[in-house]
């Protein structure tokens, strides 16, 4: 097995829920592989989005690119449906004036079918999430 970009559209990964929706800045922009496009939140925190892989994967490295995020938590699930999330990692970010926040996470226990991102607080009234890229392995299809 080789390490691949698990967010590539050809791999079938989707954002299946987001708590904010401006049709001009949809959550699909998070996993389109392009840092120039983004999902914008539309007010009040926490805000969430859920990424569904539609298969079992093993995540090795995750990179989050965003702006104005103060505190984020990532939960994961191994269920077929987006249920039974367990807390995985939580981190406070540093504000980087005028440039994207780029946050890397490395994992050993990366087995998942879904990831839930909870943006708990922010440095401003709104945040943008430009890109989530996830490197890892395809493990098996959902049975």
């Amino acid at each position: 097995m080789r390490v691949i970009d698990l967010c590539e559209a050809s791999e079938g990964t989707e954002v299946i829920l987001a708590t904010s929706s401006d049709e001009k800045y949809p959550p699909e922009n998070i996993i389109d592989g392009n840092s120039a496009t983004f999902w914008a939140t539309t007010g009040m925190f926490p805000q969430e989005f859920i990424i569904c892989f539609h298969r079992h994967v093993k995540i090795e490295k995750l990179t989050l690119q965003c702006y104005f995020v103060r505190s984020v938590r990532i939960d994961k699930s191994n269920a077929k449906e987006p249920v039974d999330f367990e807390r995985w990692v939580e981190r406070d970010l540093v504000h980087t004036e005028g440039q994207l926040q780029t946050e890397e996470f490395m994992f050993r226990d990366g087995n998942a079918t879904h990831l839930r991102f909870v943006i708990k607080s922010a440095f401003d009234h709104f945040v943008s999430v430009h890109r989530v890229s996830i490197e890892g392995l395809n493990v098996s299809s959902l049975t």
């Binding site: 800045y25 120039a36 914008a40 539309t42 007010g43 702006y67 994207l100 401003d124 009234h125 430009h130």
Partner: peptide
């Protein structure tokens, strides 16, 4: 005012990349 602020932030987010 809140709507204006949102529009301003969108412009800021666009300018980052």
């Amino acid at each position: 005012l809140f709507h204006q602020l949102y529009r301003e932030r969108l412009e800021l987010f666009h300018s980052l990349v």
